[in-house]
Amino acid sequence: MSAARKQYLSLYHKFWMCRRLNSTKCDTNGSKLKLDFKDKVVFITGASSGIGAQTAADFAQLGAKLALVGRSKEGLEKTAQRCKSKEKPLTLQADLQSECDIQTAFEETIQKYKRLDVLVNGAGIMEMGSIESTNLEQYDRTMQTNLRSMYQLCMLAAPELIKTKGCIVNISSVCGVRSFSNLVAYNISKSGVDQLTKSVALDLGLKGVRCNCVNPGTIVTNLQKRGGMDEEAYKALLERGKQSHALGRNGNPTEVSSAICFLASEMASFITAVQLSVDGGRHALCPR
């Protein structure tokens, strides 16, 4: 194991030890590493369910002020109820295929909080299909939601994040690292997210803004079912996860949101342009 990897794992371990102890600061080689997001404004898309909802709950626990964006008004309200924070989160129902909806949601956030510290691009859809069966409407829908919306939000957020020396965390996928059959549009979109992440990191690095992404493996959410997978196929997918992940199991939203909070924290202050695999080692295997 490389020295850099050992250092990263050490910091990550200390992050969670401190969080379990409900501590806000840890000393490491004389430096104070803040674990709380008190007075920090965090904008999260895809917050009405799955990884986005869990990420919102975790940031709330760490003291953040939240702007939650999602398609489902009911889902957003449920997420807001899970957020145990002093100030009720701002909930913004929006269709991320709509440029106008994205612009409006962002403007309402700045109008309310007057600043932005963290952008979490978490919204995503999965269209099942091969190059033979995926039509252009499905392709466009996937790219609009999974990539174009992220690009637009990074553009909108950049001036605000430069002011606060903030950061961006994008949710990509193991499909951005490895290609899987019958997911052609999804694979392409997530590869785009990885390139967007690294490009933005290079563009904004000298202005004090970091940009990273997490690449989850199979996480137990409703993503696949919303993409058209039936119950039987979904059960089969989860069963295959025992062989397709090096750890012998599928992941859960908390394991991904933990990585997101870490990357957004001061403990990751020298980490940018990174694709962090949170996939139980799936990217290192060659599953079909």
Rank of each mutant, 00 (worst) to 15 (best):
A67Y: 10
A67M: 10
L68Q: 13
V69N: 02
V69D: 04
G70C: 05
R71L: 14
S72H: 10
S72Y: 11
K73V: 11
K73T: 13
K73C: 04
E74W: 00
E74A: 14
G75L: 13
E77I: 07
E77T: 13
E77L: 05
E77A: 03
K78I: 02
T79P: 07
A80L: 02
A80C: 00
A80R: 07
Q81M: 01
R82L: 12
R82D: 04
R82V: 03
C83A: 03
C83Q: 03
K84G: 00
K84L: 06
K84R: 14
K86H: 04
K86Q: 09
E87G: 01
E87W: 11
K88Q: 11
P89R: 06
P89V: 09
P89Y: 03
L90D: 00
T91V: 15
Q93W: 10
Q93D: 02
Q93G: 11
A94R: 12
A94C: 06
D95L: 05
L96C: 05
Q97P: 08
S98V: 11
S98F: 03
E99A: 15
C100N: 14
C100H: 15
C100M: 13
C100W: 06
I102T: 12
Q103S: 09
T104Q: 14
A105S: 14
A105C: 13
A105L: 06
F106E: 01
E107K: 08
E107Q: 12
E107I: 08
E108F: 07
E108H: 12
E108T: 11
E108W: 04
E108S: 11
T109V: 02
I110C: 00
K112M: 04
K112Y: 05
K112G: 06
Y113L: 03
Y113P: 08
Y113S: 04
K114C: 06
K114Q: 07
R115C: 09
